[in-house]
Design a protein around this nucleic acid. Structure first.
Lengths: 336, 336
DNA sequence: GTGAAAGCGCTAACAT
DNA sequence: ATGTTAGCGCTTTCAC
């Protein structure tokens, strides 16, 4: 790998001249001839500025990290796109990390920011994590923006309007004529799960519909959780005629388990989920969902992080534009 | 962020003493007392070695990059785990990158290795890429290992035994009694698609079964491709009674489209796919698949890269251990 | 047993 | 218009 010195030697000039030219230093007075010689030499040698050299000099990397529990979650696709687009617009690179095991001590984040590998981090905390577990991470005071949750004592978070999303899903079922509607929710400690449940309850209350204790499950966001939830909820007497599922992956499990139990969707049971994904198009029946502005969440999070990096105070933001939108497919219909 | 100098000042010793102690320099003669003082000071200041400083000194980062076209592809889950485990065992960190748009000029790879951000790169090339498009990347001579393809003129690749996988899937259908079996393949330029097709054809030939031109589609690996393929293949007269699908995502499309067309799986049509994923458990009917050793592919690729980084010649490897394994679910059965 | 100093690649303030 | 130099944080050789 060629260095500035190599280029300088080849062009017959000093190192600083090369630096000035190649980094477009403002107000650098360099003759057209030398400038050309330098550019040529750099091209010949396929010169690229050394990352470590720059990082050391500037104490800045222009790299941010995005750490998510499960990168293969369809939720992450749009998020990553949003993060990358906004980062690119600010000439930053994005480094991706998994945090299935984001240790409570925040080792991963410390390694990233503490060792100066990146300037700041976007973290999506796994749903099963308790807020108390994250206290060390929060207290370390790193430039950090939480995705999908606000953390007590920490300013720097970007979340979706989960409540509006769940409300929209619920209202759709109510408009179809359903009255016995149940909720397949996430874990009680999950920030998003609590908000989605609140949205569900708000819509039910607004319509004057009861929500008995047997109409809410709070097991989690993976297909197996959806399966278990369905079995539990359908045991109620009378069983619900419709389901608001808090997460699209759990909804996949709900649909599969409904087939196993011989429950016809949407005839016997209407199903709508919060969050859209490509998988929802390929279920049977195709799944009606509420699409959340996940891409914009990514962009907003990067903006928030940059404010922090620029010395700002940090802030918590609910991403509400565009608002949640119903994607009508075939898993919902009026009750029999 | 504390530096060696900060620690040294606090411990009342020189920078070099601190470096020796904190990096466990072999044969460093440091008194127990100073050693303790230094460790204490470092802990007090939450000292962490600066990444850029080390990288500059060593001209090495101990980071490798894994670049895949679509991180949210379920295929990537096991792969990432394998890569991370093997990298961790060698004290390397893994940096993830998307390459949906891995530019033919290899800009992304140049940025990673050329600027010294990472020591080497694992690249999975998107299926639609033509080998010729990758020539510049290959010629740049970077420490590179290709995943899932061998590139002409490049030594450093790790691939699955696609042929064995497709053969196993096909043999399963033949054993069930099917004779008219069709293949839903990937794009003609795709390395894996060609090998899987070969495995399908080999198994058919071994059983003395014909493969008419109407029994092979080569559209791609996403659900929409599977849908299109199904419509095309079922137009044959007589239509096939079973399908070997080269990819699990395409198989999801096949199943969904079969529902739309009123084709009963497995009664009218048996379906088996190459590659397993959690999604396959939640389709209806649950999808029979051939599980490939994707985790081991990740490990092997890291090993190959490390040999290259250690000055070795690089090599191409087919990961065959464990061998492809049939995961029997409910989408396959004997023909009517 | 401990410290001083050079140098990795880069930029910027300061010469000339 | 161009060159010299200090210094970012780190390791390591050399000196004491």
């Amino acid at each position: 790998m060629a260095t500035l010195g190599d280029v300088a030697r080849r062009a017959g000039v000093s190192i600083s001249a090369v630096s000035r030219v190649l980094s477009d230093a403002p107000g650098a007075r360099v003759s057209v001839a030398t400038r050309a010689r330098i550019k040529q030499a750099a091209a010949d040698l396929a010169y690229r500025p050394n990352f470590a050299g720059r990082a050391l000099k500037f104490a800045r990397t222009d790299v941010i990290a995005l750490v998510v529990p499960d990168l293969t979650n369809a939720f992450a696709t749009d998020l990553m796109l949003g993060v990358e687009d906004e980062a690119a617009a600010r000439d930053h690179m994005v480094l991706l990390g998994r945090s299935e095991d984001l240790e409570p001590d925040g080792e991963m984040v410390s390694r990233l920011v503490g060792e100066g590998r990146v300037d700041g981090v976007l973290v999506q905390v796994a749903d099963h994590r308790l807020p108390a577990e994250l206290a060390p991470l929060v207290q370390a005071g790193h430039p950090l923006v939480f995705l999908n949750s606000f953390q007590p004592g920490h300013l720097g978070g970007a979340v979706l309007d989960d409540e509006a999303g769940a409300r929209l899903a619920t209202e759709h079922l109510i408009a179809l004529g359903h009255r016995r509607i149940a909720h397949v929710g996430g874990l009680p400690q999950s920030f998003t799960a609590r908000r989605r449940l609140a949205g569900f309850e708000a819509a039910m209350a607004a319509a004057g519909l009861p929500v008995p204790g047997t109409a809410v499950s709070r097991l989690g966001y993976v297909p197996a959780d959806g399966r278990a939830a369905l079995r539990r909820l359908m045991a109620a007497d009378p069983p619900p005629t419709a389901l608001v599922v808090a997460n699209v992956n759990a909804a996949l499990g709900v649909l599969a388990e409904a087939r196993t139990l011989g429950i016809a969707v949407p005839a016997d049971l209407a199903v709508v989920s919060v969050h859209d994904a490509w998988t929802a198009e390929n279920t049977w029946p195709p799944l009606t969902t509420v699409k959340m502005p996940t891409y914009e969440l990514g962009r907003a999070a990067v903006r928030a992080l940059h404010e922090r990096l620029g010395g700002g105070p940090g802030r918590d933001e609910v991403v509400a534009d565009p608002p949640p939108r119903l994607v009508l497919r075939e898993s919902t219909a009026a009750p029999r």
